[in-house]
Amino acid sequence: MDNYHDRRVRKSKIALKNALISLLQQKNLQQITVTEIVQAADVNRGTFYKHYQYKEELLEEMVDDIIVDLIDSYREPLKEGEKISINNLNVSAIKIFDHVENHADFYTIIAKSNALVGLQSRICIQLTDLMREVVEQAHEIKGIELNLLASYQAYAIWGLIMEWINQEFKYSATYMSNQLLTILQFTRYS
Rank of each mutant, 00 (worst) to 15 (best):
T47K: 05
E61S: 06
N44C: 14
L70D: 01
S73A: 15
V63E: 14
D72M: 04
D69H: 08
Y54E: 07
N88W: 02
N87K: 15
V63Q: 12
Y54L: 08
N90D: 15
N44K: 14
Q53I: 13
I67V: 13
Q53V: 10
D72I: 03
P77R: 03
S85D: 14
R45F: 03
K83Q: 15
L89K: 02
I71Y: 14
E57T: 04
H51M: 00
A93T: 05
Q53D: 08
E57I: 10
E76D: 13
S92D: 14
G46W: 12
N88D: 07
Q53G: 12
D72R: 12
E61D: 14
Y54V: 11
V91H: 04
G46N: 14
E60M: 12
N44I: 12
L59E: 02
N88F: 00
E60G: 05
R75N: 14
M62Y: 06
H51S: 04
Y54N: 04
S92W: 04
K50S: 05
I67L: 12
V63R: 06
V68E: 10
G46E: 11
S85P: 07
K50E: 04
E56I: 03
S85F: 09
M62H: 01
Q53A: 12
S73H: 06
N90K: 10
E82P: 01
N88V: 00
E56K: 00
V43M: 11
E82K: 14
Y52I: 05
L70V: 02
K79N: 09
E57P: 05
D64Q: 15
E76T: 15
L89M: 11
V63L: 08
E80A: 13
I84M: 10
Y54P: 02
L78A: 15
V91P: 02
R75F: 07
E56V: 04
K50G: 01
E82L: 02
E82I: 11
Y54C: 01
I84Y: 08
V68N: 07
L78V: 07
D64L: 15
D69F: 09
G46H: 09
K55S: 03
E82M: 13
D69V: 05
I66R: 15
K83Y: 07
D72Y: 06
I67Y: 07
G81C: 10
L70G: 01
P77M: 07
E57G: 03
E56N: 07
E76N: 08
E61R: 10
V43K: 04
I66K: 14
